[in-house]
Design a protein around this nucleic acid. Structure first.
Length: 584
DNA sequence: GCCGTTTTCGGCCCGACTGTTTTCAGTCG
C-alpha cells in the first residue's frame, strides 16, 4: 500500500485544522483529531486492518471516518478537504503554529482582514491593523508579534529526528539507483547529532567515473527541487559537492568522493570547524605540513584507511563525532580524559513510561512486553498524577489499583522487574500533588512541571529546588520544560537547580522525546561535572516510542557524560541499591 | 463524528490563565 497510517493521520489533522478555522462543529472536529491521533500512534498493522475491513476497531474511528479513510486510500484525495482548500488559502494553517493564535483568531484574521498566511500577518502587524479588530488589543498584538518572530526563527531549523528520517529516505533512494555506490555516511551536524540542524550533509563514496551519473539520478528524486550548485574540491581530486534545495526548503549538501578519499572527506565534512582547527594545530606541533583545505599533509608512510587512522596519525584516540565541537575534546584526548560515552546497548531499563491509566495509548502489560522485547532488565511505570486533569492523572485509589497490576506483572514476567512509579506534578508552590504517604508507597518518583509556566525565574527556581530537596523525589523530569521549535524553556536558573541536585543527590532526567531533549547537552555536561546523576528516559506513551531512547543517548554523548553518570545503565541490583541509598 | 448507554440520543479531556472586556471568549497544556 502506497499510503501509511501516518499519512492518513496527517490528512485528517489538516482537515480538522481547516474545519476549525472555517468554524465547523467543535465536536465533529475533535472526532477527526482523535482519529488522527489514534492513527499516528497505531501499533497494529494498518494495511492488515484496512484489507480485513476492520478500520472501526481503531479507537475514535466509526463508520463515517472509516469511509473517509477508504476514500483517501482509493482516490488518493478527499473531497471535503479539497473543497476547504479551495475556500481557504494555502498558508492559513501555519497561523495556528504561532503562539497566541488559535482557530478562532485565525478565522477572524482571515474573514475580516484577509490574512491568509504568515507573510500577510507580518504586514498587518506592521500596519497596526490587528489591534483595532474587536477582541484584539495592544497586548495581544505584541504577543502575536513575538510569537511570529519565534515562529520564523524556528522555521530555520529541522530537528534531529526529522533529519534522520530524511537521511534514511535519501539513503534508500541512493540504494535503489543503478549507480554503483560504495558507502553512504551522514556528515556535518547530523553526524554530530545536534538537536536542531540548519541543513543536512552527507558523504557518498562512489567511483569518480560514476559521479556524473549519480548527479543526474539525484535530480530525479521527488524531494529534490533542484541541484542549485555543483562545485569541485581540489583537495579531493576534484570530487563533487552538490548543493541541493529540497521542495520543503531544506538545504542538502552531498559530497561525492572516491573511495580512497573517504576517511579524509568524512572527517572534513563532519567538522565542526572548531574541532578541525584544533586538529590542524595539533598536526602543526607534530611537524606535519599544514594544508589549507585539509588538516595536514600526510606522508605516504602513514596508511589512512579509515577515520580512526587519521586520529592515530595525530597520536590521538578516536574522538566520536558527538564530541567534535571544539569544546576541549582534543585536549582531553591528549590527556586520555575523554569520557566513556554511553551507547544504546548500555541502557538496562526505562524509568519514565506512561500507560492508558493516564494518557498513554497502550495498557500496562503491553508496555511491559515492549520493554522485555528491548531486552530491558527493569521498567518504571510513571503515569501522570492527580492534578493533571487533561492527561487523566491517577487518583491515589487508581494508583493503588495500578500497583496491584504491577505486582501481577512481576509474578508473570520473571525476565523484567517492574517498578511502581509516578510522574507527579510539581505544583506552583513546589509541593507535589500526592501526599507523603502515597509517594512513600512507590519505588520511584519523578517530579515534573506541567503547569504555571509563567512564573518568574526566581519563583520557578525555588519551586523546582523545593522538589529537588524533597527526599521522596528521585528524578526531576524534563527539567527545562522546553519544546523544541515550539516553546521556549521556562525561565529557571538551571545552574542553581544543578547545584541543589548535586547536594541533595537528586537525579535529573534527560528526556529522549525528540521534541524535548531536556536536559540539553550543555546542562547535561554541567550536571555531570557537578556529580549529578542522570536518567535517560523515553517518556514513552506507546511501545513504539521506546525507540526514542537513542535521541537521549545522543544528548548524553554530546554532553560528555560517562556511562556511570547515567543511572539506567546500572544493573538491576546496582540500580535498586542506588535508589534505596539515596533515599536514606 | 464517535460512543456508550439510563441503547438511537446527549455528551464529548477540563481547568487555569490571559486579555479584552465589563462578564467572558480564546488559548494552552
Amino acid at each position: 500500500m502506497e499510503i501509511s497510517a501516518r499519512d492518513i493521520s496527517q490528512i485528517l489533522s489538516e482537515l480538522a485544522d481547516l474545519m476549525e478555522i472555517k468554524g465547523d462543529n467543535q465536536y465533529r472536529i475533535s472526532a477527526y483529531e482523535r482519529a488522527a491521533r489514534s492513527l499516528r500512534s497505531l501499533e497494529e498493522d494498518f494495511e492488515e486492518l484496512y484489507r480485513s475491513d476492520r478500520l472501526t476497531e481503531i479507537s475514535g474511528v466509526g463508520e463515517g471516518i472509516a469511509a473517509t479513510i477508504k476514500e483517501i486510500v482509493e482516490e488518493g484525495s478527499l473531497q471535503d478537504l479539497e473543497e476547504l482548500k479551495r475556500e481557504l488559502p494555502d498558508g492559513i494553517i501555519d497561523l495556528l503554529q504561532i503562539p497566541g493564535l488559535g482557530p478562532k483568531r485565525a478565522h477572524k484574521l482571515f474573514y475580516e482582514l484577509q490574512i491568509g498566511n504568515v507573510r500577510d500577518l507580518k504586514n498587518a502587524l506592521e500596519d497596526g491593523a490587528i489591534r483595532d479588530l474587536s477582541g484584539f488589543g495592544e497586548k495581544l498584538e505584541k504577543k502575536i508579534a513575538e510569537g511570529l518572530r519565534r515562529y520564523r526563527e524556528y522555521q530555520k531549523y529541522i530537528s534531529i529526528d526529522e533529519a534522520e528520517d530524511f537521511y534514511s529516505g535519501i539513503k534508500q533512494f541512493l540504494d535503489s539507483t543503478s549507480v554503483e555506490i560504495e558507502e553512504v555516511f551522514p556528515a556535518g551536524s547530523l553526524r554530530r547529532k545536534k538537536e536542531l540542524l540548519k541543513d543536512v550533509d552527507m558523504v557518498v563514496s562512489v567511483d569518480s567515473a560514476d559521479q556524473k551519473e549519480l548527479h543526474l539520478e539525484l535530480e530525479t528524486w521527488r524531494r529534490i527541487d533542484e541541484v542549485e550548485r555543483s562545485r569541485t574540491s581540489e583537495r579531493f581530486n576534484n570530487a563533487q559537492i552538490l548543493e541541493c534545495r529540497l521542495n520543503d526548503g531544506l538545504q542538502l549538501d552531498i559530497f561525492l568522493v572516491s573511495p580512497a578519499d573517504l576517511p579524509w572527506a568524512l572527517l572534513m565534512f563532519t567538522g565542526s570547524d572548531l574541532h578541525l582547527e584544533n586538529l590542524r594545530q595539533k598536526a602543526k606541533t607534530q611537524g606535519f605540513d599544514s594544508d589549507t583545505d585539509g588538516i595536514f599533509c600526510c606522508s605516504d608512510e602513514i596508511d589512512i584507511k579509515e577515520e580512526q587512522d587519521i586520529y592515530r596519525a595525530l597520536d590521538l584516540p578516536y574522538i566520536i563525532p558527538e564530541l567534535r565541537e571544539g569544546q576541549g575534546e582534543t585536549e582531553a584526548a591528549v590527556c586520555g580524559e575523554l569520557p566513556e560515552s554511553p551507547g544504546l546497548k548500555d541502557i538496562k531499563g526505562d524509568l519514565h513510561v506512561h500507560t492508558n491509566f493516564s494518557d498513554g495509548s497502550q495498557n500496562l502489560e503491553e508496555m511491559v512486553q515492549g520493554a522485555i522485547a528491548r531486552g530491558y532488565d527493569y521498567l518504571a511505570i510513571t503515569d501522570h498524577s492527580v492534578s493533571l486533569r487533561i492527561a487523566d492523572g491517577l487518583t491515589p485509589e487508581e494508583l493503588a489499583r495500578q500497583a496491584e497490576i504491577i505486582e501481577e506483572m512481576n509474578e508473570k514476567y520473571e525476565e523484567i522487574e517492574v517498578f511502581k512509579g509516578t510522574e507527579a506534578d510539581i505544583l506552583p508552590s513546589g509541593e507535589l500533588d500526592y501526599s507523603r504517604e502515597v509517594l512513600a508507597e512507590l519505588d520511584l518518583v519523578i517530579a515534573s512541571v506541567h503547569s504555571g509556566f509563567n512564573q518568574t525565574e526566581l519563583e520557578m527556581t525555588e519551586r523546582i529546588i523545593k522538589a529537588v530537596e524533597n527526599p521522596l523525589v528521585d528524578i526531576i523530569g524534563h527539567p527545562q520544560g522546553r519544546l523544541l521549535k515550539s516553546r521556549e524553556a521556562y525561565s529557571v536558573d538551571m545552574e542553581a537547580v544543578i547545584e541543589s541536585a548535586a547536594s541533595n543527590r537528586t537525579c535529573l532526567e534527560i528526556n529522549s522525546f525528540p521534541s524535548r531533549l531536556d536536559l540539553d547537552d550543555n546542562y547535561a555536561r554541567l550536571a555531570g561535572e557537578k556529580g549529578v546523576k542522570m536518567a535517560i528516559n523515553t517518556d514513552a506513551h506507546r511501545t513504539g516510542e521506546y525507540e526514542n531512547m537513542i535521541y537521549g543517548i545522543n544528548v548524553g554523548r554530546r554532553g560528555w557524560l560517562d556511562k556511570n553518570d547515567i543511572i539506567n545503565t546500572y544493573s538491576l541490583t546496582e540500580f535498586k541499591d542506588f535508589v534505596s541509598q539515596r533515599r536514606i
